[in-house]
Design a protein around this nucleic acid. Sequence first.
DNA 1: ATTAGCACTCTCGTCTTGAGAGTGCTAATA
DNA 2: TATTAGCACTCTCAAGACGAGAGTGCTAAT
Lengths: 350, 350
Amino acid sequence: MGDELSERQRAILRLLIEQYVATARPVASDVLAANPHLTVSPATIRNAMADLERAGYILQPHTSAGRVPSDKGYRYFVEHLMGTAILPQSEQRTIDHQFHQVELDVEEWMHLAASLLSRLVHNAAVVTTPHSTIPRLKHFQLLDLAERRAMLLLVVQDGTLTQQLLTLEEDWDQEHLSALATEANKHFHHLSAGELAEAVLPPDAPPLLSRVRAVLAGLLARLEEPAASRLHREGLSQLIDQPEFRETDRLKQMLDLLEGDSILLSIVPAVQAREGVQIIIGDEHRSDQMRNCSVVVARYGLPNDVNGVIGVIGPTRMPYGRAVSSVRYLSDLLTGLLDQIYGANSRADA
Amino acid sequence: MGDELSERQRAILRLLIEQYVATARPVASDVLAANPHLTVSPATIRNAMADLERAGYILQPHTSAGRVPSDKGYRYFVEHLMGTAILPQSEQRTIDHQFHQVELDVEEWMHLAASLLSRLVHNAAVVTTPHSTIPRLKHFQLLDLAERRAMLLLVVQDGTLTQQLLTLEEDWDQEHLSALATEANKHFHHLSAGELAEAVLPPDAPPLLSRVRAVLAGLLARLEEPAASRLHREGLSQLIDQPEFRETDRLKQMLDLLEGDSILLSIVPAVQAREGVQIIIGDEHRSDQMRNCSVVVARYGLPNDVNGVIGVIGPTRMPYGRAVSSVRYLSDLLTGLLDQIYGANSRADA
DNA sequence: ATTAGCACTCTCGTCTTGAGAGTGCTAATA
DNA sequence: TATTAGCACTCTCAAGACGAGAGTGCTAAT
């Protein structure tokens, strides 16, 4: 079980994976032999392939078929063979251009990032809207709606917008609501859910204020959960073209996965903990439901502050090089954008 | 081509459609004959079916197959045969219950409505977030972010929340921003995009104010377009179980349809114009892309004010009765919820 | 250590075939 | 006249047969 592969074996594994990723068909020895980078005969390649199979890097679907990479093979590939791919300059420029064209709006950015990513890699893309781990109140406002109905508007330090409708005990007009909000904003500014719950209110404060405080604390607390991330999905239709989803049940599995937030969000914490682009291949997933797909994903944003996750999800047969370079480029780009907005602020706070 | 179908033909057409909707297989004459509601022999039914086919209500996939409803057949069914279905009390209660459990939050309601609808009808569901045709400014706020970066926050009369990042010419601190916003809110309150663009500013107003006015007008104008509706999709995975989507290309077509907003939103104006639940079957659609699906859809909300659209989309083989009753119940429910919030307000304005 | 040659295995598309499904028609019946 | 039993006919579909082709592993030669 030694991990020492000969130079030739490594070359063969690399070419085999590249070939398989491109064509989705088992790769035969003479196809590889036709490759100008390999100057040996099909027979030699067959011997090497037999070794690779014994070592678990490739598989044979059936006797008279070529070989197919195993999850272990892909792992070896991304670790030792593919090098550090970089997105071509021309594509970088196209992407930059598209971001310049769009409005200055975080949601738009996320949407664009997801959509670009899915098209770059020809797989589904997922992006979470950025938010900080300990959301702090930036501003809130109370808006009169109908009699005894008000809208409580909450702006979080990380840019998140939330609203909540309130039924009031008594009738308040807009002027009084605004006054109350303006005053309270001074006290509540920059507090987290926990701090808010403990904040001291002036003794003469109206009962509405403590009610508002409770609701605000509740909203902030809900935003602390990782499940609060808004998920942008894109490029489902890219997946359907993949031959691995020809059988409808595999596709259904995938759809279920993408429709429910839970499984996707389960990988978010792991990603946020580490730096750089992460790759999870097939059976390396915890969830059975993801056993036959791969995920290439990275955190973006400010390390211990407002950040999110961007990634690609698709079958294990994935252009890992391209996926990694695309995810890396886009996550860096988003980080830059967020830094422009929140960077100075957070540095000032520190 | 007379539309007069005999009583028996109507009965046969009705049973055939019900049967086909349930099983998705061509319906044979003796299957219908086995139905206790029909006391005639298979041969008689065959004669009637031949008539129905000549008249275009049903089709025969091939010689030795049973019959399948045509789009015209479905149209006749929904118009004359299915009656006015009502959602069972028990299900109504379950739905009410779920809405009571959820927070007072419009987005949550829409999400819940879409999710419930898709499960009720076992098809994909689509709900647009409610908004008014002429959005009017309710409130805005300017929030300091980093140096020379501010967030412009816009609350529309219909509850829509929008934000836009601004790069400022000079540094403003939060206090001055708030003061400017508070003052300007008085002037801008309840204005539409058009009115806002023409609003007179005090002569001593800082240049930032006219900048803000322009941005606000732009945001409001963008919200006037029907494409501004936020679309909640749900239940894609319900579709994949439908036998009509066994062939991947049909499914792909459907996915493309649901992923792009454009085609879906194209039906929104038509729906908003009319009252009640509307049904569009197969080739009645304008867009080729929708030729083999049906849509059951209704407007909800306040007629000429804040409203949206809720509907089901799926193959033409759809349980129309159930779809109509579900859409009707949910649209009425949403209307009621919105009326509680905006109803009094809008009546006061009128 | 590499490779040519070859026998062997397994898949896949095509073809055949027969059973079964469901019809339309005809002639008998109420 | 409307209905129905009976039956021949058509077409689909699943199962089996079969051969071509793909790709291998092994052996013996280089």
